[in-house]
Structure formats: C-alpha cells, structure tokens
Design a protein around this nucleic acid. Structure first.
Lengths: 198, 198, 198, 198
DNA sequence: TATTAACCGAGACGGTACGTCTCGTCTTCGA
DNA sequence: TCGAAGACGAGACGTACCGTCTCGGTTAATA
C-alpha cells in the first residue's frame, strides 16, 4: 500500500486552530449559536470563507469539532479498580464537573444544543465521544457482576441508564442548574441500595 | 378596569389551526426544524406571512404552541392509588408511550430540539407542561414515604430523578430508539430494590 | 379582456430610479464596469440585493436599462425635409454630439462596451434603439432617391453604411477622441461628391 | 551593459503555446469572454495558475497576446501599385476576409470585445497592429493624391475613414453577419464616385 | 344601513447569511 | 529555478429567509 503523494501547498494547521478558537471566543462572549454565522466566524478569524468550507462542510460539522475539542480538554477518568461503587462515583462525578467546567459551562450546552438539531452529527458525536464513555461504564458494571457487587440478573444497558440517567436528567435537561457536590455519591448509593426500606 | 373593546373584523380561528397543522404535517414529512421557515409555513398553510406574525412573535413561539398542542392530545395518567409501585410504572409507561405515539415520534423530538435552543421558551415549557407532570411524581413519592413503601431519608427531587432519569436518558438522548414494553416495570423495580445483591 | 388583478404591495418606482442613478453615479466617478458589482450597486443605492434581482435578471440587463435611460435623454433628431444633404448632416451630427454629451462621454462608452460582451443584450439594444435610428436614415435616403438627390442604383443598406460608418469608426472604435465640429458636414459632402476629382 | 545571467531551469516555451491555444480553443467552443477565467484556462491547459501569471500580468494581457497571434496568421496585403482603386479594394477585402476566416470569426470578436474594456491594452493594440494597417492605407491615399486619382483637398485621415469606416461598421458593429463578396469593390467605387447622380 | 377598524392574501422592502466561484498571491514538492 | 498543485484572504455571485410594510379586498360590530 502506498500513501497518496501530497501535492500543492499544504494546509495551514494554524487556520484550524484559529477558527475553532474564534468559535469558542464568540460563544464565551455570549453569542447564541443562532447568532453564529460562517460569515462572521470567517471574518473574525481573519480567514477566507472558502478556507472554512474547505475544512468543514457546514456550520454543524464545525461545531462538532468544537465540541470534540472541548471534550478533549477534560480527560475521561480512569477507573481505579478499588471498588465498583467508587468507580461509578468517579464516572458520574466526571459528568457533573464537565457541566460546571470553566469554559464548558456556557459553551458546552450551546454547542450540544445545536448539534442535537442535526441527527447525523448527533449520531457521530454519540458514536465517538459518548459511546466511549458508555463502554467504560459497562466495563465497570461487568466487573461488579463478576465480583458480586452488582446483581447479575439485570440487563447491563438498563443498569448503565439507572446510574447515568439521573445525572443526565439534571445536567442536560435541566441545564446544569443544580449540580451540587456529593450528587454523584448520592445517586450511586441510592441506586445500589434501592429506595425501598429494608 | 374595562376590557378594551374589540373592533374590526375578528381573527379567523381557522387560521391558527391551519398553521399549526401545517407545521405538524411538514415535520411528519420529515422536514428538519432547520428546514422549517416562516416563509414556507405561511406559503404551505395558504396564509399571509403577516398573519402568522400577528399571532406568534417568531418561529419559536409558534413551535411552543405546536408542542403544547401535541401534549394536549396525550392526557396525563391519573394515579390509581393502589400501590406506589404501580403508580410509578404508570407514569413512566406514559413517557414511554408518548415517545412512540404515532404523531409524536417524529415530531416531538424535532420540536423539543428546537425549543431547547431558546431558553425563554424552554423555561415556559418546563414551567407549564413538565412541572405539572413532575408534581404528579412528587405526589406519588410523598405518598410512598407516608405509607412506608419508600425510604423517607432521601431528597424527593433526587428520588424523582432516579425513576424518571433512566427513561428520559433513553427517550430524549437516544432518540426513542429502544423503548421496549416492560421497560417501565423494569426500571421501577430495579430502583426500588436496588442493584446490589441481598 | 380583463386586466390581471395586481396583488401584494406594489413596487416602489423610486427604487428603479435610485438604482439606475446609482449606476450612473458610480460610472461617472470613474468606476470601470468591471468594478461594478450588484453587491456594491445595491449597497450604495440603499436597496436590498433581492430588490435589484427582482427587477433585472442580472448585471447586464440592468446596464441595458441604464443605457436606454441615457439614450432617452438625447432625443433623436427629426428630419427637417428641406434637403437630403441637410438631414444626413443632422443625423450624423446627432451621433457626434451623443459621443461628447456631458453624462454620456465617460458613461456611454463604458456601458456600451459592457453590453457588447453579451450578445443577447447587444442584439436587444440593436433591435430597439439602434434599428430605430437606422430606419430614420433609410427613410431619408429613400426620399433622396425619389427626388433624384441620391443615386438610385445603390443598395440602401450600403448607402447608410457609407455615411454612418465613417462617423462610427471615429466614435466607437477610436473612443470619441477626435470628433471636431463640422465633421458631419465634411463626411456627408465627401460621400455625396465622391473623392475622385471631376 | 551586461545581459542578466539566466539561472535555473529555463522556461518551457511550449507552455506559452499551450496556454494561447487553449484560450483559442475555448473561444472557438463558444465560451463567452466572461466565462473565461484564469482558473479555467490554466486547468484546461494543464498548467499551474502561477505559471500563467508568471508570463502575463492578467487576463487582459494574455488576451492581447492571443489577439496578436491571430493577427499574425493573416498577413497584411502588399499594395500592388497598379491603381489606387485596386489597392484600396485589396485592403478592404483583407478586412472582410479576416472577419470570415475560420478561426477568427468566432474568436476575434470575443477577444476584441474584451480588449476594448481595458483602455491601456486597447491602445497598445491600436498602436501596434491597427496603426500599421492604417499607415498602409494612408500611403496608398497619398499616392492617389500625387497621381491625381484622389482629390487633394481632403484630410487624409478623413479619407481613410471614408473607405474603412463602412466596412468596419458592418464587421465590428453588426458582428460580421453580412460580408458578401464584392463588398470591398462596391464600397471603394461608391466612395470614389460619390453617391450623387452626375 | 352605512361606517369603520381590524382582519386577510399577496408580495415588495432592506438586510443578512448561505455555499460556490474566481481573483491574484503564496507555499510546498518533485524534476 | 521551474512547473504543478493547491491553499490562502478577499469578495462577488444569485438564492432564501428574516421581520416589516403596504396594497386591495373582506367581514363584523358600532353608530
């Protein structure tokens, strides 16, 4: 197999950075996603419109990359392995902190909201970023079933939703408004123990 | 205080219906929210653009009404009162069926996605439609705490999220793709019993 | 026969004028036709781009109208009928003055040059404005043949070119640079008398 | 004076030819001048854009060269010297044939039209190609005055226009549509004899 | 019964953004 | 150093939609 010979002037990597940073800056300055236009992005980034379209087929794809660049800043937590309970707390705590992170807070919700409007991109985001985190949760749950810390008679997918769902319900649906510290522990313990008195 | 005297030709109520129905039709035909324009809505409804703007200040407000008209079709279930467990199943089952309902399936997600982009409308939707359902869940949970069917040491708000969150995670975030029958029972029972072996 | 009912807001006639005047102003300010863009014309006329395109399908059609508006300012001379020789002088003199007219001088040549690049418009211009003047010349020549002032054995079309061609050669091809007074008389008399000594 | 030392890879003369030929081909295929872009010319010639710009400063200069290459194919006729009348016919006949020539017909009008839009180039073209032919006409006319075949009381420049103008009026202004054989003779004889009966 | 004010559809209006194209320049690689 | 390939900033292209406005015409309550 041969690599295709690259010809012509190579793309300027600084442009990619400049564009993404410009989008982040505009969002941080409070611009709604609807107020973002390719026209304006290119203008403020000091870049030709065609140069933007050469890299991204449209606004949505650009925003997907912006979203990915945001996610990249926050590294996914590595399960410690001590106890399944602690690992689950770790993972939910990551979700909570992501929603409160410095840059993210305003930007993340705006970008995600936009991406959601575009099924294809939303799926791409799910399949890459989200699915990876989902797999990590499955892994922890499977370990829990093996060690006996988790009931083995439940569907792993359902199990994952039992832990992650409550946090997401607060974070995504209710706009990250109330994500107090300790929320992760409270969710994990309640789901583990059940809410029926015993 | 006197009511302002309405003079001149009264508004044609059929226009409101025609516009909302047109939006629903277009969404059912698979139009993304981005492809919906006031221009097109008015054209396809056979109505003047100004007539639409006379009734709704913008696309978002119109969509909020469309959303409300959808919700109105599905009446919220009345708690039976036999057992707390059955009432919770009833409520989650309503969420599940709403996501699969004929009209809703395609339309609901599109409209909600759009409304989400407009904080003011999203709050209006939350405060009217969603909060009502939320209160119903709180009521059932409070009853459960009183009868001893539910632990009384947990925050009712957290409790509500424990039950509703997993269903919403599947419904809204994963696009209503997998909402098998019996899902409501499985969630309720798992949360009640806990996922730790005993 | 019924006149079609005019519906909707009627077009603002002032817009047509504003646009044409803007083009003329820009050309007078020395803008080459190549530097004229619909974008700029609309901007400087304080008019929406779509409004321009609603009236003219493109830049060329607009320029054709600009050209016609210029021609309209200079009324075609009416043959006096005294002598064929004087009428021919009158008509050539009109061509000469047109090329030197205040507005025309800079503008006319620019617009004509542009129109020439678009065969369809050039033909439209020829068929309307030019052909009318051509017919007037034929009429005078036919009269001359009838009265015996002009040889009857020559093709009228060729005859017209004999008189008009020399003036046009100077005006159009050599950019109206040398159009001295008395040129019309000199051409007409030379063609009438012939350039062979007798 | 020293000749600058040429270093590096010498220019490939075949490129110049390829580019000019490509322009001719595109024009022959009916492309309007407006549809010609440097981008397209370079692409179709299989040549880099920079290579074109290294040789010509812009589209107009390139077209000027194309025009010159066309003129070079048709050699200017040499006056025979038998009679002034025959030499004038010879020269007008050259103009007529040029307008009907295989390649020229479509191309010449397109290129000339374009060149006309650029005063500097138009002047360059006038000063080189056209002026040469003009001088030849003057020469013949001067000879005619000396031999008494032409009236000596007329401005030579006006005289030249009397002969050349009618042919150009048909050729350039009316798009070479009607240039029948014998037209040169008819023009020359009519101008010589005059159009007044005697 | 006649007036009148708000309604209706249509569509023009000044703007703005879309995604594509061409401009002339710049930057790389391989010959 | 050349030629090709193609990226680059700039900005025009023609279209679509925004929300407002202005027409002629309709419709009901008021006078």
């Amino acid at each position: 197999m041969t690599t295709a010979v690259r010809r012509g002037r190579p793309r300027n990597a600084a442009v990619d950075v400049a564009v993404v940073e410009t989008v982040l800056r505009l969002l941080e300055e409070g611009a709604g996603v609807g107020e973002l236009s390719m026209e304006r992005i290119a203008r403020e980034a000091g870049v030709g419109k065609a140069t933007v379209y050469r890299r991204w087929p449209g606004k949505e794809a650009l925003l997907l990359d912006v979203l990915r660049s945001l996610e990249a800043d926050l590294q996914t937590p590595e399960p410690v392995g001590e106890s399944v309970r602690d690992d689950l707390v770790l993972m939910l705590e990551f979700l909570r902190r992501r929603g409160l992170a410095k840059r993210s807070s305003a930007v993340l919700r705006a970008v995600i909201t936009e991406i959601r409007s575009h099924p294809r991109l939303w799926r791409a985001y799910q399949d890459t970023v989200v699915q990876a985190r989902r797999e990590a949760v499955y892994e922890v749950l499977r370990r829990g079933m093996a060690t006996g810390e988790i009931r083995a008679d439940l569907d792993p997918e359902l199990l994952a939703d039992l832990f992650v769902g409550p946090m997401l319900a607060r974070a995504v649906l209710r706009e990250w408004q109330e994500l107090p510290g300790g929320l992760a522990e409270r969710i994990v313990d309640a789901v583990l123990d059940g809410v029926r008195p015993h």
